[in-house]
Deep mutational scan, measured.
Amino acid sequence: KKEGHWDCSICLVRNEPTVSRCIACQNTKS
């Protein structure tokens, strides 16, 4: 897992550190 990346708590997609919403389901970063 790269530094700063985060996994969506709903759909588990891994997102870039620069985005505050999931690219797949638009869930906000927790």
Rank of each mutant, 00 (worst) to 15 (best):
S20N: 11
E3H: 05
N27F: 06
S20R: 08
N15P: 02
C25T: 00
R21L: 04
Q26M: 07
R14D: 07
C22I: 00
E16I: 02
N27G: 08
N15I: 04
A24Q: 07
I23R: 11
V19G: 05
Q26L: 06
L12F: 15
A24R: 07
V19Y: 08
S20M: 06
S20A: 13
E3K: 15
N15V: 00
N15S: 05
V19C: 01
V19M: 15
C22E: 03
T18G: 05
C22R: 00
C22G: 05
C22S: 02
E16N: 09
E16A: 03
G4L: 15
A24T: 06
S30A: 04
T28R: 07
E16D: 05
Q26S: 10
I23P: 09
C22L: 01
K1T: 15
N15R: 01
R21P: 10
E16V: 02
E16S: 06
W6Y: 01
I23W: 06
T18A: 03
S20W: 03
E16F: 00
R21D: 10
C11L: 00
D7C: 09
P17F: 05
V13L: 04
I23E: 13
S20F: 12
T18W: 05
V19A: 10
G4W: 01
R14K: 13
R14L: 14
S20T: 11
C25A: 03
N27T: 13
Q26G: 13
C25L: 00
I23Q: 14
R21S: 12
A24K: 11
N27W: 03
T28P: 12
S30P: 11
N15C: 01
A24M: 04
A24I: 09
T18Q: 15
I23G: 11
V19K: 08
V13G: 14
R14N: 09
Q26N: 03
K29Y: 00
R14P: 14
R14C: 10
K29G: 14
K29H: 08
T28Q: 09
I23M: 13
K2R: 11
V13A: 10
T28V: 11
V13R: 04
I23T: 15
I23A: 15
Q26W: 05
T18I: 11
I23L: 10
R14V: 11
P17C: 05
D7V: 07
C25F: 00
S30Y: 06
R21V: 09
T18K: 09
V19P: 01
Q26P: 04
N15G: 00
D7S: 03
I23C: 14
W6G: 09
T28K: 03
N27Q: 01
K2G: 12
R21F: 09
K1H: 07
K29S: 11
Q26I: 04
N27H: 12
N15W: 01
V19W: 06
K2S: 13
C22N: 12
E3V: 01
C25N: 01
K1I: 14
R21H: 08
V13S: 10
K29I: 03
N27Y: 10
E3S: 15
C11E: 12
V13W: 06
Q26R: 14
V19T: 12
E16Q: 02
A24S: 03
E16Y: 03
V13D: 03
N15T: 03
A24F: 09
S20K: 04
V13F: 07
V19N: 08
V13E: 07
C25K: 01
I23H: 12
C25V: 05
Q26H: 07
V13H: 14
I23S: 14
C11R: 10
T28S: 09
N27C: 11
S30F: 06
N15D: 02
R21Y: 14
K29M: 12
S30R: 07
K2L: 04
R14S: 15
N27M: 13
K29D: 13
V19Q: 12
S30H: 12
T18L: 08
N15L: 00
I23N: 13
C22K: 02
N27S: 14
V19F: 04
V13I: 12
P17T: 06
R14F: 03
R14Q: 15
I10W: 07
T28I: 11
E16R: 02
